[in-house]
Simulated scan of single mutants.
Amino acid sequence: MKWLHLSDLHLIYKNYDTDVMRVGFFDYLKHHFEGKVDCLFITGDITHQGQEFTDDVYEFLNNIVIALDIDKEKIYMIPGNHDITRTNLMGNVIKGILSENDCRKAINEIDADSFDVLYKGQQGYRALYEKFLEREYPKDDLHFVIKTEDYNIIHINTCLIAGGDNVEGRILVGLQKLLNTMSEISKEKDKVTFALGHHTVNCLNDAERTSFLNRLSDSEVDFYLCGHVHQSNIHQESNNYKTVHMFTAGANVVDGYSDTIFIEGNLDINNGNVEVVYHTWNQPQEFWHISNSLDRRLVQGSYSFELEKIKKKRIQKKM
């Protein structure tokens, strides 16, 4: 099973270096991955600073589909904070929630009118989702699960309050809604499970962070894929019942700050061996290549480990 993980496309953002990189990006995808990718994950910030999802955005996304030769039913994506249309009313609702002594309780018990104010900011993203992926967006669910025969994908919408000021490190996902969503896979924990979220765990509010990690562990999530920070990262959350492997992709921009990086994952479903490869853009020389310098664990060009879930199955079969 091979997947690619892209994040923070910021497609309205343009400059010369980014334009050159994106031309090379499509050539690189086609040359190395055409017809070989089983899943494509996009973890938010498709547009930039709440701007419209223009025809150029759809063209870019469809060019990815063409380069990979992938069915759209194998593409899974979530919104980012830049995919939100902000309003003053939204900002006031968010400010009120974060000012509560127990903000975790406040977001769990949010009234319908306040929720609608926040959720309406993602209306443009939901329209993009349906037009591009050609399937209905589950509008009644903040978070939702897509189940397949071989794996589950939990879509965690981390952007409900992301349209406010000074929310960095204070993100609330709404743990009650997340718990309800994860209950849908309570009898399918033996499947490989991905969770997608735009924000890293460190971006979450202190009031939710520990319980959020518990939800991932208790639902036996194998991979948490995210973005937002524009800096790539590898992390194993092992201080729990179940290890969760966390991967942060970079951004699809060249701006002097961002890691211009996407991630490739490979899973051998028979023995549980996983290999993760980071692909990066060399801006001075203008070419894409495999990176072995972002993390000491990538020194050989990939980060490898064994998935506990499949290892356990294999041992049980031998007994």
Score class of each variant (00 low, 15 high):
K105V: 12
A127Y: 07
Y137F: 15
A106I: 04
K120L: 08
D69Q: 07
G121P: 02
E100N: 14
I107G: 00
Y58L: 15
D113E: 15
V57N: 06
F132N: 05
D116Q: 14
A67Y: 05
D71M: 04
I66T: 14
F60H: 13
E130L: 08
Q122R: 09
K120N: 13
L61W: 04
L98E: 10
D102N: 09
G96W: 05
D55I: 11
G96T: 01
I78M: 08
L118Y: 00
A106W: 06
T87K: 02
L133T: 03
I107E: 00
P79T: 03
E134K: 13
N108C: 09
N63M: 07
N63S: 14
L128I: 12
R86K: 14
Y76I: 03
V65G: 00
P138K: 11
M77I: 13
K120H: 08
L133V: 06
L89P: 09
V57T: 12
I78C: 07
A112Q: 15
Y76P: 07
Y58D: 13
I107V: 05
K95M: 07
D55P: 03
N63V: 02
M90C: 02
I66L: 14
G80R: 00
V65K: 06
L61Y: 11
N108L: 05
R135C: 05
Q123F: 10
K74E: 06
D111I: 01
Y119G: 08
N63Q: 11
E100G: 05
P138Y: 12
A67W: 07
C103A: 08
Q122G: 10
K74Y: 03
I66Q: 14
D69G: 09
I107N: 01
D116N: 15
Y137G: 09
